[in-house]
Measured scan of single mutants.
Amino acid sequence: KLPPGWEKRMSRSSGRVYYFNHITNASQWERPSGNSSSG
């Protein structure tokens, strides 16, 4: 399961899957890690 705020999306241009955070408006190709504590 993804960390809070993150969701899986697909890029229309490349067709690749990326991850988008609707809370911080951040996007990245790598899967966000939800196990590590923020610090």
Rank of each mutant, 00 (worst) to 15 (best):
S27K: 13
S27C: 15
S27W: 15
S36Q: 10
N35W: 05
S37L: 13
G39W: 05
I23L: 11
W6Y: 02
Y18D: 04
A26G: 07
P3H: 02
L2P: 15
G15P: 02
G5N: 06
Q28F: 03
W6K: 00
S37E: 12
P32H: 01
H22G: 05
S33P: 08
P32E: 01
P32N: 01
N25I: 05
R31Q: 08
E30T: 06
S11V: 11
R31H: 14
T24I: 04
S13V: 12
M10R: 14
N35E: 13
S37K: 11
W6E: 00
P32G: 01
G15F: 02
S36L: 10
T24K: 03
G5E: 05
T24G: 02
S36M: 12
A26E: 15
P4S: 07
N21E: 01
E30W: 08
K1Y: 11
M10Y: 15
M10W: 15
Y18Q: 01
F20R: 02
R12K: 14
M10P: 03
K8M: 15
Y19G: 00
S38K: 09
G5W: 04
N21R: 00
S36G: 13
R9W: 01
W29E: 06
V17M: 07
R16S: 06
Q28D: 02
E30R: 04
Y18I: 04
H22W: 14
G15Q: 07
Q28I: 03
R12T: 11
R16V: 08
S14H: 10
S11R: 05
G15E: 05
S14Y: 06
S36A: 11
S11W: 05
G39A: 13
M10K: 13
L2T: 03
S27A: 14
R12V: 12
G39K: 10
K8T: 09
T24Q: 03
R12I: 12
S27R: 15
I23N: 08
P32Q: 01
E30C: 09
K8P: 08
S38Y: 06
K8G: 05
N21D: 04
S38L: 11
N21F: 04
N25T: 06
R12A: 14
F20V: 06
N25S: 08
E7S: 08
N21Y: 03
V17A: 07
Y19W: 07
